[in-house]
Design a protein around this nucleic acid. Sequence first.
DNA 1: CCACTCCATCAGCACTGCTTATCGAGCATG
DNA 2: CATGCTCGATAAGCAGTGCTGATGGAGTGG
Lengths: 288, 288
Amino acid sequence: MDPHLLRTYVTVARLASFSEAARELGYTQSAVSQHIAALEQDLGAPLLTRRPVAPTAAGERLLEHAGPLLLRLDAARADVVRMAAAPAHGLTLATTPTALGPGVLGALPAAGVTLRVLTRDEIPAAVATGTADLGLVDGLAAPSDPLRLPDVAPLTTHGVAEEPVSVLLPTGHPLAGRTGLRLGDLADARWLDAPDAALPLAHLRGANGGGAFRPALRYEGTDLRTLTALTAAGHGLTLLPRSTATGIPGTVAVALTAPRVVHRTELLHGGAPRGAAAEVVRQLVERA
Amino acid sequence: MDPHLLRTYVTVARLASFSEAARELGYTQSAVSQHIAALEQDLGAPLLTRRPVAPTAAGERLLEHAGPLLLRLDAARADVVRMAAAPAHGLTLATTPTALGPGVLGALPAAGVTLRVLTRDEIPAAVATGTADLGLVDGLAAPSDPLRLPDVAPLTTHGVAEEPVSVLLPTGHPLAGRTGLRLGDLADARWLDAPDAALPLAHLRGANGGGAFRPALRYEGTDLRTLTALTAAGHGLTLLPRSTATGIPGTVAVALTAPRVVHRTELLHGGAPRGAAAEVVRQLVERA
DNA sequence: CCACTCCATCAGCACTGCTTATCGAGCATG
DNA sequence: CATGCTCGATAAGCAGTGCTGATGGAGTGG
């Protein structure tokens, strides 16, 4: 199971074409064909149907494995190379939209920082492969419980902040006057399902006792402003950390009192942060 | 980064010898030397010091990556091959000592079952690589919260049982008469640290509020009987699921009332269980 | 019915990756 | 201080892998 073969397999599956994959990978069509044949012979099972080109059941299974595998491979290479290479003078920080609190911003150096707003899942991958030097992820958790992160690579995590969670409601909402809300009060509410911009409702699945939420509208993207505009317009409620939920025009933020979860943000980095990254880590961890 | 090179690297690091590694891998010493040289050139950093042979800082880092990586690779191969191969007539079930409740035993077929008691960490690996068809893992969790399992491969999990947690005390213990115990009552107690046989105390780290436990004796192994004998002899307390904690000579089981955690056991399997395994999965999942 | 696209297959060739053989450095021994 | 031994690096040689370019057969649209 050569990673090269795996890589051509996933591109063939993605493009649904041997020739296209060959073009993208810089091989001849013949080579791609041989790669797939080699893989199929090695594993003893057909992976693709030809005409049309589509993964078989076994091939689907392999695809599920291939992504994380190639990611880990990249991560390993990046991690080792990072140890040897000179520390870059810049600093790249990957973050979710809701993880970047004022405390973190204060710890960043004045110049030379690149900020990159990504999806929750993309951040560990970015840090592992060296696309970003540091990562900030957030999510809902029981107080002082660590977040559940996909372990794409051996990364180091530090909790850097915890704060209460708020429900964002449009100003006219019947519950907008409350001082606190229990999740049970909101069982029948319409929610915005915005896993990448706000706090994902899926995190509450366990605490909720099995009752599924009714997502009114699914929002894919990382822009908080349009998301809050959607709740202001009455398209559904949103879960946000308190500090980012307050002061948004057309909305009211009400504290979530039950279940007892907090918005937790954690700092991620690879093996040995160097240069500016090390400095930021030191400052943030010392404070916590 | 050929997996072959990675494999020889880890064996060289493990054996601290090029020649020994060559013997174990069935290569010549020359080949091993060339493998390491190729890896070092590819990554642009020395990975091993020679004389004595030991990993450098970068090499240590690579070692951390290599294990999970090779494991995932095996898992991927096993998973795909499993789809194509005929369903084995036997059934191998990997389990922790405390996960095997009476409910599970009832669902097993009368003959053809191999039971394999392993460490918590070994079970996902065994299921992923096909060493076992099914796995049972257990641990402490908030009610109806899933366990935190290392994701070595895309595995499917089903919760199959939850039950209260008990503290196992020697009969003469001052707290043995209680009907329920809070963790705070036991802050000064001596605990047996037996992560592979009993429930690992580390799982309570978060709920405990930061106070570390004092492990009196560390027990490595998966035999429950000698472990319970140790607590009976007063060497320290043990955390067990209620059903396995009751009726052990020389000990008393007292319910743990706070924090509110349960002993949860989950069933693990790869992509598509076949034959006898599928039947067991169906039965256990339907019941839950 | 023909032209075209797409994947499989074949032949040829360069190069990789192994082996055997040899060397040099470190280390113990007499 | 010389000698023998172990261990890893290096050189040369050779077989097999893995690529390219060319050709063939199957399906598809005009």
